[in-house]
Design a protein around this nucleic acid. Structure first.
Lengths: 258, 258
DNA sequence: CGTTAAGTTGATCCTGCTCAAGGTCGGTGG
DNA sequence: CCACCGACCTTGAGCAGGATCAACTTAACG
């Protein structure tokens, strides 16, 4: 209970994210259309390296970030230092939007690999949405999708077994990643997580996640090794995850900007 | 694991929700300003009785609801019938918004007491947001607030002890209710939940929630009896809940429509 | 090669679950 | 009026899924 966790600092991000990035033309992101628009509003691009916080819990938000490339996770921290990962964001995500400019966030955002973001000052967002009315509703759709994911995540953490939680998380990440980066039938992907990330996302300990992953591999369901995820048996996976395969497909087309 | 839960049907809603409703003029809700606006867009009011679903998991969403009065909870269901409550909504909440018209929801919404909602067909929402550009951004702010709550809820369920989870939930509901319905110093409120609802929201069993509540009362923290919540010691409560009292106040002013 | 983050494995413990049996309250019908 | 019924709450005994603690191994980087 009182085991403060040292700030998550990866050894170094040398080879990180070197694979499968920018394999698709930017125009595939849908958001790209809005991008040219954005440049007129005093926005800028910025790069964060893996392990770096885009913003931290308890600080004021001063800008909105659009994630152009790479992986980011959102997390909450308890007083004793324990961490809960609440969301994994990939290209196209909007991060740091809040109701009021300068509001204090209760959660943080950290880059898993080197990421590129588009920084939009809060004021620019106001102006943008005034002059382009469709932006507000688009933003609402995006947030609604994230809210749905959060609800499903919460349901999993609150009511499923360790095995099911891990399986569900891996399945979700696989489906979402697949829809962003490709469309072909590969069942393997680069997943820049440690077992501790999986533990923090599922509400388990990394020790127990290790045992669960071991068994999942043994049972021929999935294999996760060296930041590489391999789906051994999709049907079995969605079965273990407690997710209807039909419903899993809903994770595919959740990018409102398209 | 295989214990199907019968649909939650309260014994009867005779005396339900008879207290402390409509104690404030509607204009307090901020949303009221938008209400007159809404009437021009083919919307209608509707009443659901306690225990009734506004919409159910796995069904298509055909309208957006604005909750005018009463309590509603959002929930997810696992195949084995177990339920996770992901959110409690009170007056001013927007329910059932989704990215695409007719999309299948993975979660449901159920009235805890008799509730009044304003029904907005999806198409009307489109028209509304086209003609009143500020609506989109306002909706985004509202969803952003809910997303923040969902993240905090998830962090609690994933990482806190049973005692802390229950305390945090009760504290959250108290603060949010307080900000909607009044501003004075009463530390008691009508909370139309059963212990099973608390269990489903915190990811515990009702048996264990019972024990936790008993101890919280014993320790002079809070008392929850006969759908009435009594805060015995606010400082102790936020301490047990693992919530910084300063931060708890953020739950007070989270109604973007004001 | 030494260092460090991350993964692996075993032993033990404990929080919260399961199963089971009452108890309470309000509503309903004889 | 009273007996019964259904939803909900209470309490106890025993169990188990995952946590905790503690080594040790592996892989990558400098």
């Amino acid at each position: 209970m009182i085991k403060p966790k040292k700030p998550h600092k990866p050894r170094s991000s040398a080879r990180r994210g070197s694979t499968q990035r920018r394999t698709e033309p930017e125009s595939r992101h849908g958001i790209a259309g809005s991008l040219n628009l954005l440049r007129e509003y005093g926005t800028s691009e910025r790069i964060f390296s893996g392990g770096q916080d885009l913003f931290s819990p308890g600080t004021a938000t001063n800008a909105v970030y659009i994630l152009l490339d790479g992986w980011v996770f959102l997390y909450g921290i308890l007083e004793d230092g324990r961490r809960q990962i609440v969301h994994f964001a990939m290209a196209g995500a909007v991060l740091g939007f809040s109701q009021v400019e300068g509001a204090i966030t209760t959660f943080g955002a950290q880059a898993l690999v080197e990421v590129t973001v588009c920084v939009i000052p809060h004021q620019a967002l106001d102006k943008l949405s005034r002059e382009h009315p469709e932006v507000g509703l688009q933003l609402a759709r995006l947030l609604s999708a994230d809210l749905g994911l959060a609800f499903e995540h919460l349901t999993s953490v609150g009511r499923q077994s360790a095995r099911a939680r891990v399986a569900r998380l891996l399945l979700e990440l696989f489906m979402r990643y697949w829809s962003v980066w490709s469309g072909n039938g590969i069942e393997t992907m680069q997943l820049p997580l440690t077992q501790e990330h999986i533990a923090d996302a599922t509400g388990l300990t990394s020790v127990h996640v290790n045992r669960v992953l071991r068994r999942l591999k043994q049972d021929g369901v999935v294999e996760f090794h060296y930041r590489r995820l391999l789906i051994l048996n999709p049907d079995k996976l969605s079965n273990v995850a407690g997710v209807d395969p039909q419903q899993a497909k809903l994770w595919l087309r959740r990018r409102p900007f398209d």
